[in-house]
Amino acid sequence: MKRTKMTRRARNNINGFLFALPWIIGFTCFSIYPLLASLYYSFSSFNAVTDPKWVGLANYQNILKDMLVWKSLKNTLFMAFVSTPINLCLAVCMAYIVNKSFRGKGAARTIFFMPSIIPVVASTMIWIWMFDPTYGMINTALHWFGIQGPAWLNNPQFTKWALLLMGSWNTGTTMLICLAALQDVPMSYYESAQLDGANAFQIFFRITLPNIAHILVYQAILNVINAFQYFTQVYVIITANSGVKNTTTSGGPANSILMYPLYIFYNAFSYMKMGKASAMAWLLFIIIAILTAIMVKVTRKTSEVAGSE
């Protein structure tokens, strides 16, 4: 009896391992090995053809001295911490709207969600055309109200705001998650608040918001992490401005949209400084890990507070 049990466990182990084997191989080749290799690369110097040579901390010293690293980090931090509150507020508002019952609710949900599945290259191209200073739709619409619109993508003061506007078009996924969270708030909470004579604002800030806070913090973390990976949009915009693919190393007007991942990409594949690129990537990894840890801690606190209320 005991022996059959043992063999069954062994069999389960073999079966489980074999079924998961594709992922285990993939994880080894495409996650854990590259992660460790990248750490080693960050202490060495090489390009696409040569083999890595150990150079110690030289790459990291190089980063500290490179003004563009700091510029790109600043741009990325700006995007992360300005886009996150904007997108979350918009997503909550939209979720709040489509959570009400009204005619055309389904259509509104579809319209709000659809932009987030459009290929980024296509949507960026549409937006570049919309941002055209003279013939673009945005400045045309502003003109209807007598406002002279700026040269969005050519004026370093406005480029990031153009990116933020573009990004807020893609809040559909966050909206859906907020909607699911809103629907999870028990109706009885609202009913008892209404009996107590609370008004709509009180209900929203005292009941709705605390009950979806944990989801919001989680979405905020994802939004920040995504902002640190912001690449395609700026690369397409820069290619549209400079014309030729794969040869540009521009950071947009006055380097105002030189994002951190973009600068890593330039270092790795244009300047062929793959060691420096790896060091930059590890710096990014550490920043993301710290931010995530902080935000997770904040989530625990907010959910505790919400729970105790």
């Binding site: 996650s31 590259p34 640190f228 990976q229 990409f265 930059m280 990537a281 990894f285």
Partner: peptide
């Protein structure tokens, strides 16, 4: 894991 870290290896 950010793709930028694994991209080069």
């Amino acid at each position: 894991i950010p793709y930028t870290v694994t991209m080069v290896p």
